[in-house]
Amino acid sequence: MVKAETDKAVAIQVDRLYKSFGSLKVLREITTEIRRGEVVAIIGPSGCGKSTFLRCLNLLEMPTSGKVYIDGEEITAPNVDVMKIRQNVGMVFQHFHLFPHMTVLKNVMYAPLTVKKMPKAQASQKALDLLKRVGLEEKADVFPSRLSGGQKQRVAIARALAMEPDVMLFDEPTSALDPEMVKEVLDVMKQVSESGMTMAIVTHEMGFAREVADRIFFLDGGKIAEDAPPDEFFSSPKSDRAQQFLEKVL
């Protein structure tokens, strides 16, 4: 494996990342580092490539060029085991994508059981612990269709945590929720961040970003147009584009 010449404190390193869909250039030269335990909120106008950027970090999208390192290991190298890498990078989706034909418990224990070959009793215990952590242990035996949106997303977070990833990616985790359910999901995410997890979160929740994130990435024109601590970004954005964006969303 190719190791980046960076210290162990860097969880995600992105080096001149480009991504195009056909002739549409979505990401143009993104270079950045996210340190271990850091929480980054990625914001920007619709269609600016936030999801694409996030999905390049676990190779759900193949970068057109450039390099991505997770824990110092280059995941964009030609012969890496993509599945092995994804075990280490959890992802939470806007629309949850729980497995509808499995109970909540099965949803959470499926990957440790199948991917990590964890013994069943251990996987089940771990899943119950995680469900307790997201406040849903009493829902262990129901099917996802019986859950509210907020509950579904909390199960999805537990499912991702069950693989004990080093990095968690969230793509608009609260955008599909009714307003009254947003808080319960944000609370769980906050709790995850407090446990020291490295997180990259695409979100429209500016209050949450301000409170929980260590850094804000403002994506525009396929680049990270601004990269600043929340206080600085929200009080005095440098570019006009960021200013306009904030006026619209705040």
Partner: peptide, 17 residues
């Protein structure tokens, strides 16, 4: 839903399972 495959892949689940 394509999201089902993506969710499983994001967990590192291989093609056969």
């Amino acid at each position: 839903d394509r999201g089902q495959a993506e969710a499983a892949m994001s967990l590192g689940v291989r093609y056969k399972p």
